[in-house]
């Protein structure tokens, strides 16, 4: 997620950003990762929206996460609509169409593709000083060199050249 924060800082004057917080990827009562224990990111899967919001707040507070935020409801409507879990990137163009669809994370989660799309439209921008200390969202790296999604489950990344 650190890459995304840097992209946000570089392109926030040209594009809008929104983080959509979806169901936990590695909660304590499901498939918890050792890395989560090490990083003290230990939460049970929320049963209520209030619990999900509370975890999202912990995340934004810990990393001073600067991107605008929205939280998926407990029916996981956003997750379902965008095949978002555990993590995925999209770009929606000005006409409300999917302009970029990233692959399923963590292994096909590629912020560099978002940067490339934005760079093709607005030019390569790189600010030297990051405005935040945000570090990777745990979902972006649920492995410590271990878990691998079966390749058959990985969605291909597709990108359309920006107008």
């Amino acid at each position: 997620m650190g890459d995304i924060v840097q992209i946000y800082n570089d392109y926030k004057d040209h594009a809008d950003f929104l983080t959509v917080y979806v169901r936990e990827a590695h909660p304590t009562d499901e498939w918890q990762m050792k890395s989560n224990v090490k990083d003290d990111v230990c939460y049970a899967q929320p049963k209520t929206l209030e619990q999900r919001v509370a975890i999202a707040k912990d995340f934004t507070a810990r990393y001073k996460f600067p991107l605008p935020f929205g939280v998926d409801d407990m029916s996981n409507a956003a997750d379902s609509a965008y095949a978002a879990w555990p993590e995925r990137l999209y770009i929606i163009d000005e006409t409300g169409h999917i302009a970029y669809r990233g692959g399923m994370g963590p292994f096909n989660y590629k912020p560099a593709e978002v940067r490339d799309w934005l760079a093709a439209k607005y030019g390569a921008l790189k600010h030297e000083e990051p405005a935040t200390s945000a570090t990777p969202m745990a979902a972006a790296s649920p492995t410590t060199g271990s878990a691998t999604a079966p390749s058959t489950m990985n969605s291909p990344s597709t990108a359309r050249s920006p107008k």
Partner: peptide, 14 residues
């Protein structure tokens, strides 16, 4: 969305 492209970042803390 509308005025500018919207980058959507889906994920969770864990």
């Amino acid at each position: 969305w509308g005025a500018r492209p919207l980058v959507l970042v889906f994920g969770s803390f864990t």
